[in-house]
């Protein structure tokens, strides 16, 4: 039949478009497969190997060795505190940036992003200098007569939290700003014209509509904090022991690839779990700011 042999031109066009998209994606896909998926599979495989045979010993340590679960506990605690701290600090900044004039908000965002251009190592050392016994913070407080003896701000969990919070702040500000900027200004005007005081309009309208940004920033900062390495290494003073350091010790000191792999796999599963939970509340594309 004549009809069945004719192909709808729009279908052809669509196929051509799909091929083009695949070609454009190919380099990125190859990089991801070659440098991420394959090593991850190798990692997972390693975690079940010992002396050339299959074993569950590396995972058994999570139950038997209390250093393991204590490290995980401390890591999650630090990540949690850092996340709460960044949220509290970033929300007002993002709010001002989103409601300010265009030029002002560009200025604010530039200042938020600026520290990205120095390495994490440099920023961590900077905090070390600021927070040490005779550092800038202690001398200032002493000079003002607020303290009698220096506060111990560094070489502990507190130092780690302070520096990590600072380093991760942009990852909270940016998703918050993106979400707030999408809230139409006339919703606030409507809220107040209908009798809502500024506080009422904030609680009932602005805050709920900014929640996707809160969730996105929270997930991002929490997950990044879980994997932090340089900052706790420098500012923790050996008293702060995070999962990443457990991995590195296993390899550097004991060349225990199997143990290091199992820790990485467990951490990765935790991260997947967090994303899964978050996407149950808000679809993943919205967390990443696509919608």
């Amino acid at each position: 039949m004549a009809i069945s042999s004719a192909v709808d031109p729009s279908v052809l066009h669509e196929r051509r478009e799909q091929r083009l998209i695949l070609m454009l994606l190919a380099p990125a896909l190859l990089v991801v497969i070659g440098l991420l998926i394959v090593p991850l599979c190798w990692l997972a495989w390693q975690s079940f190997r010992q002396d050339g045979g299959f074993t569950l010993a590396h995972y058994a340590r999570f139950v038997s060795d209390d250093v393991y679960w204590r490290t995980f506990l401390q890591t999650f605690r630090i990540a949690f505190v850092v996340t709460v701290a960044t949220l509290l600090l970033a929300y007002p900044v993002a709010y001002v940036a989103a409601s300010a004039s265009r030029r002002m908000s560009i200025l604010i965002l530039a200042m938020v992003i600026l520290p990205f251009w120095t390495s994490v190592l440099v920023r961590s050392y900077a905090w070390l200098i600021l927070l040490q016994r005779r550092g800038l913070v202690n001398s200032a407080l002493d000079g003002m007569g607020l303290i009698d003896q220096p506060l111990i701000l560094v070489n502990n969990e507190l130092g780690t939290v302070i520096a990590t919070t600072h380093i991760l702040l942009p990852f909270m500000v940016l998703p918050l700003y993106a979400a707030m900027q999408k809230i139409p200004a006339d919703l606030m005007m409507a809220g107040s014209s209908l009798g809502g005081s500024p506080a009422h309009v904030f609680w009932r309208v602005f805050l709920p509509l900014s929640l996707p940004g809160v969730l996105a920033g929270t997930v991002l900062v929490f997950v990044l904090a879980l994997g932090f390495y340089i900052t706790p290494e420098l500012l923790g003073g050996g008293r702060t022991y995070m999962v990443s350091m457990l991995v590195s010790r296993n390899i550097e000191l004991y060349s225990e690839w199997g143990a290091a792999s199992s820790i990485s796999v467990v951490l990765l599963l935790c991260v997947f779990g967090i994303f899964r939970l978050a996407s149950m509340i808000i679809p993943f594309e919205r967390i990443m700011g696509a919608r």
Partner: peptide
């Protein structure tokens, strides 16, 4: 009472919640 150009309804509330917003406020 103001009716805005593009309605300015609160997207996270249903019809009843929108309409009773002034009462709550």
């Amino acid at each position: 009472g103001i009716v805005f150009q593009n309605y300015a309804l609160f997207p996270h509330m249903n019809v009843a919640e929108n309409v009773t917003f002034p009462l709550r406020a």
